[in-house]
Amino acid sequence: MNNNPIEIRELSFSYESIPVLEEINLVIRKQDFMAIIGPNGGGKTTLIKLILGELEPDKGTITVFGEKPSKVSHRIGYVPQFSTFNKQYPIRVMEVVLSGMLKKFSLTPFYSHEEKLQALEMLESMKIQHLKDNQVSKLSGGQMQRMLIARAMMSNPEILILDEPTASVDIVMEQDIFEILHQLNQTKTIIVISHDVAFVSSYANKVVCLNRNLDIHDLKDVEVKYPNDKSKQTQIIHNCHL
């Protein structure tokens, strides 16, 4: 047994013989704040789906908490890139957030009072408590994102994975969301996909670039190599972004 939350060894994956990921090796340690960057179609979302056990690797292994991903995916908080839900659904923000605590089986249709208090607290920490009775169709992109983060956090997961959480939000909101993630990182392992290298490099302790193959840039390594040369550091990250 090992203590690393996620270990990926020599993983390859293709969609119907089109290779998307090749020979990926990656270890995510406890309390990492890892950013994944890379071009569109680079395989970022695919890698996340493999970590969640939604897809099976063609070759190599992934273990999450030392187990097969599909057995433990419920211990990961996940905020998808494209929310697949029906935006017109008659459901309110509060109920969506509460569903983060739902169990497979239960004998009542109601959430307990404690669960509701917990959800309110979560809404407050995401600064959307005033929206709790809004129908989901009446949220802006950024508010929706916050709601989804709140839902993902309700089960108090050890790992939080966010697939481009800041794609549809303005700069202020983006700063806000990264601050929230920074707070959460005190107790949780975080993986975030982003195209915003500037934000990523100031918050993450590891930056991974994914374009079929994978490069790790431990920011600390880069800093050791190029002390005081911020532009060189950013450049390395930028290069990988191509």
Binding site: E54, S73, H74, S83, S99
Partner: peptide
């Protein structure tokens, strides 16, 4: 509401 969510959350 959100099928993928129920898959991930098992």
């Amino acid at each position: 509401f959100d099928e993928e969510f129920t898959v991930v959350r098992r």
